[in-house]
């Protein structure tokens, strides 16, 4: 029996899945990227682990797809603009060449968008954007049913958008809206504010802050609302530029923000020229892995149908 592997190499964790010939998930493996050797090391680790799972099941892995939180330059084989994690110049191609099967490397948000378009919220919605909110902030733009990559593959890199800073000047969207930004804002708050520290704990994370906001706790709520204000500005920029019908949130933080989609939509409606629907991805285990498995399944199917013709 044949199978495929899809891997989401993120800023803080690497999450992969083994899929059967149709892409249905058979096994998953997830680990942090905070190890000596960094992203390349972890990617290889997840690949080997899933390869073992495949062998145990007697599955012949035919293809793998790896999503990365950066722009992948197919000419150099290198990643660029992965701002969080020292990705600039990370030689992904050199790592995946050791995998012994054909591997597709693609921007993580583009994979997520392709999955949403064919099996998720965006089925039948040709004009939509996907916001990939995790450690960092990336995205994908679909216009008339087609993925827009832009002139240098940097379209929909929403984290690079510049926003007006309430304290004056301009700030990168990713520095206001991302898991890292939320964590840093919370940690800055607790060092100077005993009340905030009592509520949020000494070392808050993005997850604990969002969970606190969902419970209605004051400081957590303020932090999340500030982030939603900035996120609404990003969405308005996107709407004024491309007028999408739907905004899909994905990524660890994007999914955690599910209780706040209404709050985001009403902020956008108060600012914008057109108001899109806001939805959270429901693809399992996440839209990037789902898209990665799907791309690999397609590759294998194409090879099979070609073999039948010959």
């Amino acid at each position: 029996m044949s199978g495929v592997i899809g891997i989401d190499l993120g800023g803080t964790k690497c999450h992969g899945a083994l899929g059967d010939a149709a892409g249905a998930v058979l096994a998953e493996f997830r680990t942090g990227t905070d190890v000596p050797g960094g992203a390349g090391e972890v990617l290889t680790l997840v690949w080997r682990r899933l390869r073992r799972e495949a062998e145990d099941r007697g599955i012949d892995v035919r293809h793998a797809t790896v999503g990365i939180p950066a722009v992948f330059d197919p000419v150099t084989g290198q990643a660029s603009q992965g701002t969080n994690i020292g990705w600039e110049g990370f030689d992904v191609a050199a790592v995946v060449e050791t995998f012994e099967v054909p591997v597709l490397v693609e921007n993580d948000a583009n994979l997520a968008g392709l999955a949403e378009a064919t099996a998720g919220n965006a089925v039948g919605v040709p004009d939509f954007v996907l916001l990939s909110l995790g450690t960092g902030f990336g995205g994908a733009l679909f216009a008339g049913g087609e993925l827009v990559r832009g002139a240098r593959g940097a379209a929909a890199e929403f984290g690079e958008m510049l926003l007006a800073d309430p304290e004056g000047g301009l700030v990168r969207a990713e520095d206001r809206v991302s898991g890292l930004a939320l964590r840093d804002d919370a940690r800055k708050l607790v060092t100077g504010d005993a009340g905030a520290a009592a509520e949020l704990g000494e070392v808050p994370t993005a997850q604990t802050v969002i969970a606190g906001a969902v419970r209605g706790e004051r400081h957590a709520r303020l932090l999340v609302e500030e982030m939603l204000d900035a996120l609404a500005l990003v969405v308005v920029n996107i709407c004024a530029t491309t007028d999408p019908r739907l905004v899909v949130l994905d990524g660890g933080m994007g999914r955690a923000l599910a209780p706040f989609t209404g709050a985001l939509a009403s902020r956008v409606a108060g600012l914008g020229v057109s108001s899109p629907r806001v939805a959270v991805s429901s693809l399992y285990p996440n839209a990037t892995i789902s898209g990665a498995l799907q791309q690999s399944v397609r590759y294998v199917e194409r090879c099979v149908s070609k073999a039948n013709l010959l």
């Binding site: 510049l162 308005v236 004024a240 530029t241 007028d243 019908r245 057109s274």
Partner: peptide, 19 residues
């Protein structure tokens, strides 16, 4: 190809928030 958005409002940048 010319792209006008879902409701024809793509490129209505007059409504971009101003810094």
């Amino acid at each position: 190809e010319l792209y006008v958005g879902a409701r024809g409002a793509a490129g209505e940048v007059s409504f971009l928030p101003a810094p």
